[in-house]
Write a protein that binds this DNA or RNA. Structure first.
Length: 467
RNA sequence: GGGGCCGUCGUUCAGCUGGUUAGGACGCCAGAUUGUCAAUCUGGAGGUCGCGGGUUCAAAUCCCGUCGGCCCCGCCA
């Protein structure tokens, strides 16, 4: 095999005239008879290579055996493309390589899907052929971003004199929290290690040991059911520092995040970050991790509710609960069916219901509960609600109101496209090279799997799988 | 543990009020083709309709079960 002299995405006009060697995958073949165009791809991008019968009949003939995704090494001369056939959509579009020698390093079966970003493939197929899926430029980009983030974190914390220390993966089961993954010990029959849910224990010991500043990009394990954004094993940036006050900790983490976004994302975040207390967050947004990409706060209307004639409001407000409101700007046109659907979801989240009212363009209240409410008192209590708006109410115990309205707020944010999700991925599985399925199985290895009777015997484990 | 959506050529979808030679697009194969880059033109192959059972003269289509994927609730710092 000839070793590459350049990457496929990095050849420019500067290389015109040079003889180069490219190694890569065949992205696409365009056969024009005596001329064959092939897009050669590697991690860095694509270069068009040309097999021309006039230039080299033998090599041109060989080009007919090249198929999608076969791995080749080509040797050829970089030529400037004629003006009319330059490709402005390609970073390497001003040049092409005329091939003088080709070697097929590995043949390929026809792949089950094309290796392109906009290829429409279901996720199970992508996971089954993960080695192909990962070839897609988008996936390579995501892997690269993860890499860049980790390097940025390390670079920043190293500069801040943190020490990266590894902590054990075989550790001890703790009674609290999530369920542990257990690992049997052969040396200690009947006893088990637990995989760490987080390095918590050890980082505190490191502080006691005088390490002073510790960090780790740590793998954590929790044997709980999966979600779209939750895998049984995940990575967390774990840090601990001694001799610091709260302000130092917060500002250090702020700088770290600014550095990560700058170095890995090319984004300059404005500082200082807004700060709020737990009580403010929960009170205003119904969550301790509020999504601040859109506003839509929760308004306290408990006093108004206590003075109203609506029994649900009055009871919640006078018996130790609260009544809060969400304003959907311009939402008065929302059809009843949609509002009812939101009410059903609120019930699903633990509420008894979701009271609502519309404010007509004339400033009147329109709702099944309108007859219990005084317009003037309402306007005074919630001046932010304007004609044309829809107002949703939660009336219950404090924690329930916050939780339910917080979730409804998020639903509305997505539904009304108040959140810019450009560039987001569908699932956390897209940013993990080898994710697990919802049943916590590894599609590549089929783990978890049964083990041999000998292994079990050695571990002194007997199975009891009867229902 | 519970609820929901989905499973049809390699891929992505249509067909699902039971009766069709199960269809389109992309991909694939063959031929043509000197400038394409979503190449084009002509022709062709390709499906046990996830699996098992049932209803029926007849099932991709209806019913039951099962397996798999995803989403959500519970759970989870």
């Amino acid at each position: 095999m000839k070793v590459r002299t350049h990457r496929c995405g990095e050849l420019t006009k500067a290389a015109v005239g040079q003889t180069v060697v490219l190694n890569g995958w065949v992205q696409k073949r365009r056969d024009h008879g005596t001329v064959m165009f092939i897009d050669l791809r590697d991690r860095t991008g694509i270069t068009q290579v040309v097999f021309n019968a006039e230039r080299n009949a033998v090599v041109h003939q060989a080009s007919h055996s090249l198929r999608s995704e076969c791995v080749v090494s080509v040797t050829g001369q970089v030529m400037a493309r004629p003006d009319e056939s330059k490709n402005p959509n390609l970073p390497t579009g001003e040049i092409e390589v005329f091939v003088d020698a080709v070697e097929i390093l590995n043949e390929s079966k026809t792949p089950p899907f094309v290796i392109e970003d906009d290829a429409e493939v279901t996720e199970s197929v992508r996971l089954k052929y993960r080695y192909l899926d990962l070839r897609r430029p988008k996936m390579q980009r995501l892997l690269t971003i993860r890499h860049d983030i980790m390097q940025a974190v390390r670079g920043f914390l190293n500069a801040e004199r943190f020490l990266e220390v590894e902590t054990p993966i075989l550790t001890k089961s703790t009674p609290e929290g999530a369920r542990d993954y257990l690992v049997p010990s052969r040396v200690n029959p009947g006893q088990f290690y637990a995989l760490p849910q987080s390095p918590q224990l050890f980082k505190q010991v490191l502080m006691v040991s005088g390490v002073d500043r510790y960090y780790q990009i740590a793998r954590c394990f929790r044997d709980e059911d999966l979600r779209n954004d939750r895998q049984p094993e995940f990575t967390q940036i774990d840090a601990e520092l001694s001799f610091a006050d709260r302000e130092q900790v917060m500002s250090l983490m702020e700088q770290m995040i600014v550095t990560v976004f700058r170095d890995a994302g090319g984004v300059q975040l404005p500082t200082p970050f807004p700060r709020m207390t737990y009580a403010e967050a929960v009170g205003r947004y119904g969550s301790d991790k509020p999504d601040l990409r859109f506003d839509m706060p929760l308004y306290d209307v408990t006093a108004f509710a206590a003075a109203s004639e609506f029994k649900v409001f009055k009871e919640a407000a006078t018996k130790g609960g609260i009544v809060k409101a969400l304003i959907v700007k311009g939402g008065a046109a929302t059809p009843r069916s949609r509002i009812d659907a939101l009410g059903e979801m609120a019930k699903g989240f633990g509420a008894k219901g979701l009271a609502w009212l519309k404010i007509t363009p004339e400033g009147q209240l329109e709702s099944v509960i309108a007859k219990f409410l005084d317009v003037k008192a309402f306007t005074a209590a919630l001046p932010e609600a304007k004609p044309g708006d829809l107002v949703l109410f939660g009336a219950d115990k404090t924690a329930i109101v916050h939780d339910v309205l917080g979730r409804i707020r998020l639903l509305l944010g997505e539904e009304l496209k108040l959140i810019d999700t450009t560039g987001n991925t569908e699932s956390i599985r897209d940013v993990i090279a080898f994710p697990k399925t919802q049943r916590a199985q590894c599609p590549l290895t089929d783990a978890p799997s049964t083990v041999s009777a000998e292994q079990l015997k050695e571990l002194r484990i007997k199975l009891d799988l009867v229902e």
